[in-house]
Design a protein around this nucleic acid. Sequence first.
RNA 1: GGGCUCUUAGCUCAGUUGGUUCAGAGCACCUGCCUUACAAGCAGGGGGUCGUUGGUUCGAAUCCAACAGGGCCCA
Length: 876
Amino acid sequence: MEIPSKYDPKRVEQHWYTYWMQHRFFHSTPDGREPYTIVIPPPNVTGVLHMGHMLNNTLQDVLIRRARMQGKNACWVPGTDHASIATEAKVVAKLKAEGVPKASLTREAFLEHAWAWTREYGGVILEQLKKLGCSCDWDRTKFTMDPDMEASVIRVFVDLYRKGLIYRGYRMVNWDPEARTTLSDEEVIYEERQGFLYYIGYPIVGSDDRVIIATTRPETLLGDVAVCVHPGDERFTHLHGKRVRVPICDREVPVIADPYVSMEFGTGCLKITPAHDENDYRIGQQHDLEIIDIFNPDATLNHYGLHYEGMDRFEARKAIVGELEQQGYLIKTEPYTNKVGTSERTGAVIEPRLSDQWFLSMKELAQPAMEAVLSTGEVRLVPSRFENTYRHWMENIRDWNISRQLWWGQRIPAWYYGPGKEDYAVADTPEGALELARQQSGNPGLEASDLRQDEDVLDTWFSSWLWPISVFGGILEPENEEIEYYYPTTDLVTGPDILFFWVARMIMAGYHFRGERPFETVYLTGLVRDKQRRKMSKSLGNSPDALGLIEQYGADGVRVGLLLSAAAGNDLLFDEGLCQQGMNFANKVWNAFRLVQGWQVEDRPQPEEALLGIRWYEARFQATLEEIEDHYAKYRISDALMATYKLVWDDFCSWLLEIVKPPFGEPMDRRTYAAVIGLFEGNLKLLHPFMPFLTEEVWQHIESRKPEEALVVAPWPERQPFEGALLEGFEFTREVISGIRTIRKEKNIPFREAVSLQVLDEEGADRKWELLVRKLANVDQVSLEASAPEGALSFRVRSNEYFIPLEGAVDLEEELRKIREELEYTRGFLASVEKKLSNSRFVDNAPEQVVALERKKAADAAAKIETLEKSLAKLQ
RNA sequence: GGGCUCUUAGCUCAGUUGGUUCAGAGCACCUGCCUUACAAGCAGGGGGUCGUUGGUUCGAAUCCAACAGGGCCCA
């Protein structure tokens, strides 16, 4: 069989993915095995794969593939969410481009377009995950707007409403003027913006004097209803009870006193605009002030804007400042940096706005969720330092604004039957609402046509927070077999940026609706950044094309590249070089396979060094397996990968294969061959979660396998006891071989030229290891010596001394210098150890083990010094 | 402004309850090799006062304090 010298991912990836799917290896149904469950963090239905998704989903795939190999019933539920703001914005933009304004459409017509859009683009990101190799149970693919998922959301809304946890309130909320909807507090991102502080003089009524206020938002003066000073501020006591005239709109407003005002900030005098600032609103309430809202929903000025009506708020700011200046009201402006809230979705500057919204009361829900993470440890955050962030948020939790002024999403199941704010009924269905409405209103004559459903939809996170329950039907049928089997899920892998949006709320929902945690462990990944540490984003254009990377480096290469530097919770500075490294590794494994499969095998005795090498590698494999299991247990996936990488590349390829490799042109014995194949298969198993395609390809090349023997479902290697002495013996031997290679390099002795080796064996080393030295360092003869020979190059390993006789090539001075250097270092080392040992406080206080170790160090060093001194004496 | 967190080799990071020859790994770099699996490779090599300053201790990269400089969350 002809096998190309380079691994070609394109040739194999599609083939094996199709094979796995055909044999339904990713599909899970409840059975007697232990379940291992992951629910995917649902990406936006219309999104495309980006680097964050790749990292996140590669991690999930590694975990799920390993669990599957461990014989657990592995179930990874994929799906998408409807992303109401983002999707609606895209659909609106598309329609606009086609000359169709949203306002010209009915709600139903708009939703038709949105569904069409979803059908067209909805599957894209999931198809991309398949390219990455993700082994999701695709039969279980869920979408937050699926009928059953939607029904779950509605059921939960009604339930929480009836428990009194959902209420309708007139509050100051975060308004996104671009999306024309409210946002929850979590969706607002505060940014530092360079602005100005404007000092404006308000004339005092009945006086020629004026009062100066400082503001960052002069345009809002059109909504001013008062000017406020601190009651204890003596500079302004003469103003109490006076009235001032607001410039431009010429409105007379009172001067009020409230301790909220900071005497230090600005002029100590504050204008009050209750409609456009949360604190002003509070003061307005306390002082019973009027509320004047000067904005339209898109943040242009309304009729209160007078001659600025229709102008954008920022344009209006400039124009108003100009007018104030012209009319002499503007005293001065100074540069000022302030924090501005922006929309997480659209980036628009948030406008505080008063409106009726639906809120979910959080205190009660938060309590068990807080305990689960911080007290009982039922839910574990990895890395644990996120617990602090979690605690801080949970302790200061505020009610959740769950209504959105959008059409794309689950419409709030509240029906109004009268003109009053409280004239509504909440129910699962219009019929249920009608019945309730008749009761509540005492009017049995109400008809369906008298009811008007709330226009708003629910926040997308109000769907997502149920995800681990609703994907298994656990809301609608709380006792169904699936939810009972798969819930609580095992691991959740997501980014820390949605710890509050999603993770915390899922924990709340888990305890509230199931009385149980939704998952055991939350693995928080880092953010993927570029080499300048900037977050990768579409707007910056610094995110490489995900599928392009897979095309270039292969899915396995990209997976390895991403994982190599992805310590949990640490940001990952993405560098394409890492994918290159991943691809190189794939090629390395591929070529190791080419070597092995090219060997001719026949009946012949097994060389002793091959047997020794195999025994050593078995021990090495076990030691590494132990290490890898420990890394997995701690979710240190990149360390698990690195340990596997070194095992395969260094120990297996560079050492074992060189040990067992038959001389050129000679065949190999059957026992060695069979053993090497077995070890190779063990390696493939460890590698499979990281590099599923390559490993399955090689696995199937090794021999033809039945479907149930595919690597994807092969049993994970078992832990076995191993001989530590083999590892120590090999390590010593490796140093000897290294020493000979160094001398070869320094003296330009080509490898094909055999050398002989003389040993001053102070250590009493096991001579079986000489077999490896002979083969790997091309040594033709090994002899034990009683004293240092002359005319030889030397090196030392522990207290052993090795000589390579090489007449004429030996530089005596150089040899002496090397020995003196080693001697000096070792003496210094011994001195420091002895100093420790002579300190009675150390000997008395330190643990016995530590003291014993120090004694051994001293003895070893002393032995080495003796060797060195002897050699020195001989040479001089 | 409040809280959290980090600073170790050129880069990205490990370093567990203070104690092995503990100052590490990968990459990058330097040198030599087209050796019949692999130049996407092989062999060898250099490189750090562990941010600074104090303290605790027989012993500090590790614990404590202050300072300097990053980052995150919240307001």
